[in-house]
Simulated assay, not measured.
Amino acid sequence: MSLGKYNFIFFYLITLLLFFSCHKKEKTYIETIALNDVQLPKAKPGDWRYSRDEKFQTFDDFQKLKKIKPEPGKNTIYLQPIGEFNELQKKEIELTREYLSKYFQLQTKVLPVLSNTIFPKTARRIFKDGQEQILAGYVLDSILVKRKPKDAVVFMGITEKDLYPRPEWNYVFGIASYQDGVGVTSMYRFANGGLSDSNFNESLERLIKVSSHEIGHMFGLNHCLNANCVMNGTNTLPETDFHFARACSLCQQKLNSSIQYDPKKRLLDLKHFFEKQHLNSELSRAELDLQLLK
């Protein structure tokens, strides 16, 4: 073979190499941020996962579900405060509205407050600790379902009263009806006895986690077994605090398949919220995701 032919083959191979290096398939947003997912530790006694045998929900499982999705004319998240709220609590609800609008990339509105007088005696009980509790199922079925706005994709109640799901349970942070697209969460336990300037951020972080978790359920997401994630099940406040407000890459993939938003815009919006509210741990996680995308 002549030297000229060797040169031709050499340059042909170099050209192919350059072509494939330039046309290498870029990672998707989900594939990129998956590098920042944090593995769940082994469940210990008292943890949600320890006593429950939940099935891992794959992306294909999620896709096959009949679930609520935003659609034209029915694409707004509504929050319904129920109770007697002081100024700090009202501020917390407004910030939760702002957060949810960024988290789900959907218009989110707060409706006028409903009085606690809407709860009949049959939906109330006095707990062993002395506080009044409200039957969570009553809030869903007898209040929210009947008052859900026509343009609401989901409808979330927020109460300052403690909630219980059934007589044998002590309390619940929040519950949701996935078919009806309604849910409720209680602020009662998030401030450890009383909301103040000193514990405001701790309470706010708990409220945005539980609210986005319950609305995530309404959009079809099961409890997450993939990584540390806002969709992890929790039994206690320490467990809620341990789990991130960040949705893992798999849960974001599911959510984005139903709600067609720009993932990078969502991430930047959340970063700015965490920055403004000095939620530094979540801010660091958002910044790590943004670093990967660069």
Rank of each mutant, 00 (worst) to 15 (best):
M1Y: 12
F8T: 13
I9V: 12
L13T: 12
L16G: 06
F19T: 04
F19Q: 05
C22T: 05
H23C: 13
K27Q: 11
T28Q: 10
T32K: 14
D37P: 04
K44N: 07
P45G: 04
S51T: 13
D53C: 05
K55A: 14
F56W: 05
Q57K: 14
T58H: 06
T58W: 05
K66E: 13
Y78N: 10
E84T: 14
L88V: 09
Q89P: 08
E92V: 07
I93G: 01
I93L: 03
Y99H: 11
L100I: 09
Q105M: 12
T108W: 03
L111A: 14
V113R: 03
S115M: 06
I126V: 15
K128N: 12
I134S: 12
Y138C: 12
F155R: 08
F155H: 11
L163C: 10
G183Q: 11
F190C: 00
S196K: 12
D197R: 06
E205C: 00
L207W: 00
L207R: 00
S212I: 01
S212T: 03
H213M: 04
H213N: 02
H217L: 01
H217D: 01
N222Y: 07
H223C: 12
G233R: 02
T236L: 00
L237G: 00
E239G: 01
F242K: 02
S249H: 06
Y261S: 09
K264Q: 12
K264D: 05
L267W: 06
L270G: 02
F273K: 04
F274A: 02
E275W: 08
K276C: 05
H278V: 04
S281D: 11
E282H: 01
D289N: 15
L290G: 07
L290T: 03
